[in-house]
Every structure is written in structure tokens, then in C-alpha cells.
Design a protein around this nucleic acid. Structure first.
Lengths: 239, 239
DNA sequence: CTGTTCTTGAGGGAAAACCCTCATTGTTCA
DNA sequence: TGAACAATGAGGGTTTTCCCTCAAGAACAG
């Protein structure tokens, strides 16, 4: 029992808000989590939209593979079902990995204990739904409810701090449509036809069509319906 | 200074996870927030998609209008700019309301103090982006960073507890498409054409077309592109 | 057992969207 | 001061979608 766990978590989460270096984030989070038995850390940017939910890895540290070898972040993520499960989870969850006849076996558990690797996976939500995830892992971990809550607080703060320092500036990539194109696509998504939009915007039928062709090309999609989906996903237009 | 603020917040957030009645939520949250100067509470389900972000109000209590009259939830929300601002905020923010020549003046502030009403607005995020908001208000409120963090923790937990008890109903309205229709529309949103989808699903071209007509009729939209937008908004298909 | 909904399929024709190219204005940027 | 790009418009033709209606079998509820 750590009587001031909550207090420490609060102070850490607050200090992370102003942290200016990834090194600082790592040092502080380590100092907090190591006494609780967590020796492995992973902070990643995620998205529920993509087929590969993990967009970027800000911090991967520790013996995630269980054999002492350095973790290659992308590989691990691809073969770890827990990073899949995070796109469905609504709250942090514990998992356990045990070895059986058929190799590694991951399971979501209420109380991780016993032999094997254990961990806590913390999803981070934002305006576009799932935006990141933080993993804490170890061999003998403290999995009390209050610890789960503390790590949730710390994990979310750590993700935001890392994201602020390293995260995508999506002005180049995501904002790939011009204002006019966005406007036209928004009308299409609102159910208007080319002729309606042309009349509304005081343009030619042909111009609308040309804009839409350019939109499809820019977004790399085949149909306008798909362009609507992708534009919503990218935040170009609203749903 | 409250030495065990963090501790209390943790215990409260945990206890809210298992709370089975709205009354219990209210009682616990009140007991926590009143000593900090917060006398007004609002817990609401929100959505960034709609033009009116507030979908539902689970708990509205206290002298929000400043004249002792009972708050009529919808009216208040409609005329309070802070509930608009929450759709853009990424984290909890303090606001202050003062009266000037032109009436009420709301402002987002770093440190609310002095005369007037003050409050903390806490956005709650989930898989579909903004899912709710919690407002704490009062005349003389504790606005220390640690208090902000504690209320964030408590607010999020309170929202989830209230949402769990009162939230879900819209199975009738939102799930207005059949499984097959959803499947077809998902393929359309993925950029496939009628013939492709027909081949993929082993159906006739005509059947796909009929499904899509029915989809448009059901969603009350004019074009398939709009159907994609509406279906994403309703959570029928993902973006 | 009858009415409703889901799923499937079709005929026939009209409308809309889509494809290629080319061209003229502006603006902005190196 | 050209290059690049946004925004506009068009010619000419092909493909796709959309509209109406009709229909039949299966599943399911009252």
C-alpha cells in the first residue's frame, strides 16, 4: 500500500503538463511506475480509423519481448493483440501474456498475477475518438484499482505531453484540400447535386465537377462517397 | 490547502465506477465539490457532430442563472457560450461570467476570481470524439491546478457513471439500417461501385442498387454521399 | 395464420456523375 | 519574373447512379 499514490500521481500529471523534453517525461514516469513493478513503457499515437491503429510511437522501452532483446516497436505492435483490443476498449484494461503449447497467449484479465508478463493498456481519447494509447508492463505489477486509476491519469498526461512535443502537425497532410474544395465537398456531403451546388455558389456545373475530380485525386479515392468518408476522417469536413 | 484532495478524488472516482443510482452520484460529487466552493453542477451528454452539441442532460443543479431561479437546462445551454466552447476545448477550462453594460459576459480564463460566477468546464472524450461535458460552478471556487485535475477525474467518472445509468436508448433511432444495408453502405463509403460490391457479396448489381435506394429513403437523404455522412454521424458506419 | 420486414432480383429509362483533355485568369513564391 | 497552383469554365463521350414499379421466398411477430 502506497498511502500517497494519489498525491504522487496528481503531482506527476501536473508536472507533465509543462514538461519540455521527452527525456523529462520518461524520467518522471519511470520514477513513478518502477516502484509499482512496471518496467516496460510504450506511448503511441493511435487512430481507430486506420486498419493499422498505431500511427506513431513516441516511447518504447523495456523488455517487451521477454527475452531481453530490444523491442522493435512496429513489429511488436503488429503481433500484439492488445494493441488491437485498445481500439474497442472504453477504459484502461489489464492483460496477461503466458506461454502455452502454441506460443504466446494474450488475455484481457481483471487481475493480472502469476507467471508471465502483465500490463495495463490505457487508451487516450480526444476529439477524433481514439488518439493514443499508453502501455505499462512488468513481471510482477501492482494492479490495485487505485493503481490502475493512477496509471490512467499518468498515462493520459504522458501521452499528451509526448504528443505535444512529437506529435503530427497535421496542417500539411490532413489539410490537403483547398477552401473551395472543402466547401464543395461539404455541400456534396449535405446531399446536394452538382447543379444545386453550382447555383448556390454561383459557379458553373462544370466547375463543381472539376473540383470534385481534383478532390478525389487529392484524397486518393475512387468515388465521391469515399471522399466524403475520408474527408470526415481527416477532419476536413464534419460528419 | 487540502492535503488529501488527490486521495479523496481517487476514492470518489473509484466509487463512482460502481455507483448504481443517480442519487448516489449526486450525493458523492456534492460532498466532494462543495468544500471547494462549487455549488452548481451539470452533467450532460454531448456530441460535436450536431449543430446543438448537447444531446441530453443527466444532472443540472444549483443557481446557474444567478437569480435563484431553477435552471431550465435546455435554455441555459443554448444561451451559454461555454457549452459551445467545449466542442473545441481539448482539456478542462475555467470560465468567468461578469455583468457589464451589455449584459452577461462569459470568458475563458486561466484563474477565475473576483466577483461574478465562475466555473470549470470538463469535456469528456470517447470513441466518437466528444461524448459529454461536466460543469462545476460557484461564486468563490478553488481553482488551483490540483483542484482542476481532481475535478477532471471526478467529472469524467461522474459522467461515465451517469451515462451508464441513463445514457443508452437510441437503438431505435440510430440503428435504423439493417445489417445488410450497413454492410453495403460501408462498401460504398470505402469507394466501391455497385458492380464491385455485388461481386464481393455475391449478389446482383440490382440488389445493391435497391439496398442503396432503401438506405437513402430510411435515412431521409437525397444522395448516397449524404447517406455516408449521416451514417457516420449516427455511428452506423465508421469514418 | 396473416401481416411486416429483410433480402433478393429485375425492366426500362432518365439523370447524374465520371473520364479525358484544354484554356483563361489571378495569386503566390522562390 | 517565370513556375506553380487555385479557381474558373468547357467539349465530348462513357459509365454509373438513380428513379419508378413489380415480385418472390424467408423470417418473424401478433
Amino acid at each position: 500500500m502506497t498511502p500517497d499514490l494519489a498525491e504522487n500521481a496528481f503531482q506527476l500529471a501536473q508536472s507533465l503538463e509543462g514538461e519540455q523534453s521527452l527525456q523529462g517525461i520518461k524520467t518522471r514516469v519511470r520514477a513513478f511506475a518502477l516502484p509499482l513493478g512496471y518496467t516496460r513503457f510504450m506511448v503511441m499515437a493511435a487512430s481507430a480509423f486506420n486498419e493499422d491503429p498505431i500511427q506513431n510511437i513516441y516511447w518504447a522501452e523495456g523488455d517487451w519481448l521477454g527475452d531481453g532483446s530490444a523491442v522493435r516497436a512496429e513489429d511488436y505492435v503488429r503481433h500484439c493483440p492488445m494493441t488491437r483490443h485498445v481500439v474497442e476498449a472504453r477504459e484502461p484494461f489489464f492483460w496477461t501474456k503466458v506461454m502455452d503449447r502454441e506460443g504466446e497467449c494474450y488475455r484481457v484479465v481483471r487481475m493480472p498475477r502469476g507467471p508471465g508478463q502483465h500490463g495495463l493498456q490505457v487508451p487516450v481519447f480526444g476529439h477524433s475518438g481514439l488518439e493514443g494509447a499508453v502501455s505499462f508492463g512488468g513481471d510482477r505489477i501492482d494492479a490495485a484499482p487505485r493503481t490502475r486509476m493512477a496509471l490512467m491519469l499518468v498515462g493520459v498526461a504522458a501521452f499528451h505531453a509526448a504528443h505535444r512535443l512529437l506529435g503530427r502537425v497535421p496542417e500539411e497532410e490532413s489539410r490537403s484540400l483547398s477552401d473551395r474544395e472543402r466547401e464543395v465537398l461539404a455541400w456534396v456531403a449535405a446531399g446536394r447535386r452538382h447543379a444545386d451546388i453550382a447555383a448556390t455558389l454561383g459557379l458553373s456545373d462544370r466547375t463543381i465537377e472539376n473540383h470534385l475530380r481534383r478532390i478525389r485525386k487529392r484524397l486518393g479515392v475512387a468515388t465521391t462517397s469515399q471522399a466524403v468518408q475520408v474527408a470526415i476522417r481527416n477532419g476536413e469536413i464534419k460528419a
